[in-house]
């Protein structure tokens, strides 16, 4: 026993290990429970983030010029394809406008000011991505100064890509749907089938190999088919309703054969993010 403690190096190693595990548990606890990190961590992140933007500028410039060239090569084909879609879109847009006007009038009559579907968008640039396989996380250049709060949903392209995990004054960290951590992607979602019936549930895991998000513990008997649309339900927390999450890829039963499990194909490619939108819910929040 004496020899063990006289070995100075071993003691240092053990102390380091204890400190390391202590720090990890404390920071995970803070991340899970508090809405903002400690002030000193926020300040550090803000300073580091400021320089990040300066360094990122020439790199993104270089990438912009390279991708500009390759985009130019694909332009003709893309143009042909998009022309068809634009005509369709114009129709939908006009229809959408009429409906939203009607919706506004009806809400006024019902004296409903802000319902679950209303949200204010805040656009942000992705300035860095965590170089780690275990945390699919990006850092965006807007923080609490722009009204962002923890757990707000983040959109890119046509759908939800993740949620805000940590908020500093001028930047925040966004955990993507593809995060494999056990508490990252619990979104309250609703699936509407072709008959207009809907199934509520929570996203429960992510399938790394197939790039699908999974919704487990579904006990409803409503028939869900491949291709049905999945959107956020707005139940609980700070999430607005009606944000597009993806489409149903397959349905099946879980490992025990009791409840059904639904695999969802995300609406946006999660590994291609440069500009994101944080949706700030306007209706009264529960926390």
């Amino acid at each position: 026993m004496n020899k063990f403690f006289s070995n100075r190096r071993l003691v240092i190693v053990i102390v380091c290990l204890i400190v390391s595990f202590g720090l990890m548990s404390v920071s995970v606890a803070i991340r899970d429970k508090r809405s903002t990190p400690p002030l000193i961590q926020q300040f550090g992140n803000d300073v580091v983030g400021l320089v990040n933007r300066v360094v990122a500028w020439p790199v993104s410039g270089l990438k912009g010029s390279v991708s500009g060239f390759s985009d130019l090569m694909n332009t003709y084909q893309e143009n042909q394809r998009l022309k068809g879609q634009v005509q369709e879109l114009a129709q939908t847009k006009v229809h959408d406008q009429t409906i939203s006007q009607e919706n506004k009038k009806l809400k006024k009559e019902l004296k409903l000011n802000r319902s679950l579907t209303d949200y204010a968008p805040v656009n942000a640039n992705v300035i860095a991505r965590t170089p780690s396989a275990w945390q699919n996380q990006v850092i965006i250049d807007k923080g609490s100064a722009a009204g962002i709060k923890k757990n707000m949903p983040v959109l890119s392209g046509s759908g939800v890509v993740g949620r805000v995990a940590e908020v500093n004054r001028t930047n925040s960290k966004v955990e993507l749907l593809s995060n494999s951590s056990e508490s990252a992607n619990r979104f309250a979602v609703t699936i509407t089938n072709k008959n207009g019936q809907s199934v509520h549930g929570i996203v429960s895991s992510y399938n790394r190999d197939k790039n699908l998000i999974e919704m487990g513990n579904v006990t409803s008997k409503t028939k869900i088919e491949k291709g049905d649309k999945v959107a956020t339900s707005g139940l609980g927390g700070v999430m607005p309703a009606g944000l597009y999450v993806g489409t149903v890829a397959s349905t099946g039963t879980d490992n025990y054969g009791l409840a059904s499990k639904i695999s969802i194909k995300p609406a946006t490619n999660l590994s291609e993010l440069s500009v994101v939108t944080v949706a700030i819910r306007q209706a009264q929040t529960t926390n």
Partner: peptide, 8 residues
């Protein structure tokens, strides 16, 4: 602090 958000 900056990239992972987990100390240690």
């Amino acid at each position: 602090v900056y990239y992972t958000g987990i100390w240690g």
